[in-house]
Design a protein around this nucleic acid. Structure first.
Lengths: 106, 106
DNA sequence: AAAATATGCAACCATTTGATTGCTAATATA
DNA sequence: TATATTAGCAATCAAATGGTTGCATATTTT
């Protein structure tokens, strides 16, 4: 049951939860109201998100607020970095092709 | 068996394959040599990657070269966009706190 | 033409995953 | 204090996942 960030965001419900609590922390019940699944199912998703530190809890009386750990999202960004370089290069190549076309115009 | 980009990158072997063929196209056999799993397992992963258009094939005789569809990686980047905004804001907040500390110095 | 090589496809299997149901513990409210 | 609300935990289940083995097909190479 090893979890990482990529596993965590693989599930669409989990991505939706992340999007939901990104701006403000919410309780499991409040979150579950936004979905068709049961509260327990949502709770399980939250557990997974906490497990891989994408989300943190904050107890407040009997309620527990779940909040996105935005910094953790950077891990994904970091992995993407290597490819971003490539896709930018591809665009530069395209630019070169285009400008060559222009230059070679009679 | 609906596949999306996020599902695709959830598996560590698949991420490794993506990293491997990012710079130059490779055949299944060549790719499989880099891993402990069987050729068939790798082939299955490639199939999934093709299915969600993260990778494209190019037949060359009896060999098939698999190449990363870098543009498709942007889909992930696009999803991250909304959070990038948030985490930059958080940093700005921190900046404000810091500069306030400075300003309020005697 | 025969043998070797590269690859895909299908069947099968153990494990993981996502969801449900029922229960317990703790806090708030009447 | 009795009741309602919030939330975690455990057991269970169907479906998906990642892997293996065996076989078929197509292209090279000898």
């Amino acid at each position: 049951m090893r979890r990482d960030v990529f596993q965590a965001i693989a599930d669409p419900t989990r991505r939706a939860i992340i999007g939901l609590i990104a701006l403000q922390a919410m309780t499991p019940n409040a979150i579950a109201e936004h979905f068709d699944t049961s509260r327990q199912a949502v709770s399980k998703h939250l557990q997974i998100l906490v497990e891989c530190q994408l989300v943190k809890q904050e107890q407040q009386g009997r309620e527990i607020y779940y909040q996105l750990e935005v910094a953790k999202m950077k891990e994904i960004d970091k992995w993407l970095e290597q490819f971003r370089k490539i896709w930018e290069d591809r665009f530069n190549e395209l630019d070169n092709v285009l400008s060559n076309l222009k230059t070679n115009k009679p």
